[in-house]
Design a protein around this nucleic acid. Structure first.
Length: 215
DNA sequence: CTAGGGTTATTT
DNA sequence: AAATAACCCTAG
């Protein structure tokens, strides 16, 4: 419940007129990188783009010819010039009017170009691979053998050569509980054999986790 | 090292 | 837009 409140804060509501969308979802007629630039300059935010960065960006992705120029000036979508793991387009960016504090997500843009706006600078995520049913099966096996909380041991014995770290195992278990323990009716992406789900529920009942200390 | 809060990424 | 999944940070 508490986490939900935070998530609401973190997600686009902070700046309703702007959000990030994957390429496939990008729509025509919305402002992109140029609009973002304009806003940064206009707002004069000390945490916004620095002039060197702007020049650098223009050089990388600036208009090349008349067509391109029109494209830019028209405010069409532009990909982030700073190619990263995921290319995102910024859609919907209000051009004028009062604006709140900007909250830029780090990922689509190289964090180097922006000052950190939070005390804690996040490092880029390493990988993002989904768990397979087989992996979950092994995890459940391990938990039933060693008990909940022996993640390092579990890693060593069952996931020795896996990319999953002990912390990943712990996190996955937490997610499994969220998915299969409560009254979560959402469709889970990963299909697990009913027997496996049953096993998870049984383990969860026996060894509740996370351990809520008090309300 | 683990628990748990937090953030980012992907899917619905 | 919001839920879910994966990954990060760090006190104790």
């Amino acid at each position: 419940m508490e986490q939900q409140a935070i998530q609401i804060y973190r997600q686009p509501l902070e700046e309703p007129e702007m959000f990030w969308a994957p390429i496939e979802q990008a729509e025509q007629g919305l402002y992109g990188f140029l609009g973002d630039l304009q806003l940064s300059i206009a707002s004069g935010s000390p945490r916004g783009l620095q002039i060197e960065n702007i020049l650098q960006l223009l050089e990388l992705e600036g208009p090349q010819d008349q067509t391109n120029l029109n494209d830019w000036l028209s405010g069409d979508l532009h990909p982030s010039p700073l190619l990263d793991t995921n290319a995102h387009y910024q859609t919907k960016c209000r051009r004028s009017g009062r604006r709140g504090t900007r909250k830029r997500r780090t990922s689509p843009w190289n964090p180097m170009f922006f000052e950190s706006r939070v005390s804690r600078e996040y490092t880029r995520r390493k990988n993002n691979s989904r768990w397979t049913a087989k992996e979950v099966e092994i995890l459940v096996q391990g938990v039933s053998k060693f008990g909940v909380g022996r993640w390092a041991l579990l890693k060593q014995q069952f996931f020795k050569t896996s990319i999953r770290t002990s912390v990943n195992l712990k996190d996955k278990w937490r997610n499994l509980l969220k998915a299969y323990q409560g009254n979560s009716q959402k469709t889970t992406q990963l299909y697990l054999e009913p027997s496996l789900v049953e096993q998870i529920r049984k383990l969860a009942a026996k060894q509740p986790y996370p351990n809520k200390r008090h309300t």
